[in-house]
Amino acid sequence: SADYSSLTVVQLKDLLTKRNLSVGGLKNEWVQRLIKDDEES
């Protein structure tokens, strides 16, 4: 899986927004959300 934890907050928020995922919570929660989205898609 991609190394989301190395991305900036701005990059992570951009990815979350593009995938229609929530940008609520902490940075590590966003990373988990993106990883989960990868596994489900």
Rank of each mutant, 00 (worst) to 15 (best):
S1Q: 13
S1V: 13
S1A: 13
S1G: 13
S1N: 13
S1K: 14
S1P: 13
A2D: 12
A2M: 15
D3H: 13
D3A: 10
D3S: 10
D3G: 12
Y4Q: 00
Y4W: 04
Y4H: 00
Y4I: 01
Y4F: 01
S5M: 13
S5K: 09
S5W: 14
S5G: 12
S5R: 10
S5Y: 14
S5L: 10
S5H: 12
S6K: 14
S6E: 11
S6G: 09
S6C: 09
S6M: 12
L7H: 04
L7Q: 04
L7G: 00
L7V: 01
L7D: 00
T8E: 04
T8V: 01
T8M: 02
T8A: 04
T8K: 03
T8I: 02
T8N: 08
V9P: 07
V9F: 09
V9L: 14
V9W: 11
V9M: 14
V10D: 15
V10I: 12
V10Y: 10
V10S: 15
V10H: 13
V10C: 13
V10N: 15
Q11Y: 04
Q11K: 06
Q11H: 05
Q11C: 05
Q11S: 04
Q11D: 08
Q11A: 07
Q11R: 03
Q11F: 06
L12C: 07
L12T: 01
L12V: 02
L12P: 00
L12K: 01
L12S: 01
L12F: 00
L12A: 01
L12W: 01
K13N: 05
K13V: 11
K13R: 13
K13P: 00
K13L: 15
K13F: 14
K13D: 02
D14G: 07
D14T: 08
D14L: 11
D14Y: 12
D14I: 08
D14E: 15
D14H: 10
D14V: 09
L15N: 00
L15H: 03
L15T: 03
L15D: 01
L15P: 01
L15Q: 05
L16T: 03
L16D: 01
L16K: 01
L16N: 00
T17S: 11
T17Q: 13
T17M: 13
T17R: 14
T17N: 09
T17H: 09
T17A: 11
T17L: 15
T17F: 09
T17K: 14
K18M: 10
K18H: 10
K18S: 11
K18C: 11
K18N: 09
K18G: 07
K18R: 11
K18W: 06
K18Q: 11
K18V: 08
K18T: 06
R19Y: 05
R19V: 05
R19F: 05
R19M: 04
R19S: 03
N20T: 03
N20D: 08
N20L: 07
N20G: 15
N20R: 08
N20E: 06
L21A: 02
L21Y: 00
L21G: 02
L21N: 03
L21P: 06
L21R: 00
S22K: 06
S22D: 10
S22P: 13
S22C: 10
S22W: 07
S22H: 09
S22E: 08
S22A: 08
V23A: 08
V23H: 14
V23R: 07
V23Y: 08
V23P: 06
V23G: 07
G24W: 07
G24Q: 15
G24S: 15
G24T: 12
G25D: 05
G25K: 01
G25T: 02
G25Q: 03
L26S: 15
L26R: 13
L26Q: 13
L26I: 09
L26H: 15
L26W: 14
L26N: 15
K27T: 10
K27N: 04
K27W: 11
K27E: 08
N28Q: 09
N28V: 10
N28P: 10
N28G: 10
N28H: 14
N28L: 10
N28S: 14
E29F: 04
E29H: 06
E29G: 02
E29P: 01
E29M: 04
E29R: 03
E29I: 04
W30I: 06
W30L: 15
W30C: 06
W30G: 01
W30F: 05
W30A: 03
W30N: 03
W30M: 15
V31Y: 04
V31T: 03
V31S: 01
Q32M: 09
Q32T: 09
Q32A: 13
Q32R: 07
Q32G: 06
Q32E: 13
Q32V: 06
Q32P: 04
R33M: 07
R33A: 09
R33D: 03
L34H: 00
L34Q: 00
L34F: 00
L34M: 01
L34Y: 02
L34G: 00
L34R: 00
I35P: 02
I35Y: 08
I35E: 09
I35A: 05
I35Q: 10
I35S: 06
K36D: 12
K36T: 09
K36G: 05
K36H: 08
K36E: 12
K36A: 13
D37V: 03
D37G: 05
D37R: 03
D37E: 06
D37Y: 15
D37W: 15
D37P: 00
D37N: 14
D37T: 01
D38R: 05
D38H: 03
D38K: 03
D38M: 06
D38P: 04
E39Q: 12
E39C: 14
E39R: 09
E39Y: 11
E39L: 14
E39M: 14
E40R: 13
E40Q: 12
E40L: 12
E40H: 09
E40F: 10
E40Y: 10
E40T: 07
E40M: 13
S41I: 12
S41A: 13
S41N: 14
S41F: 09
S41K: 14
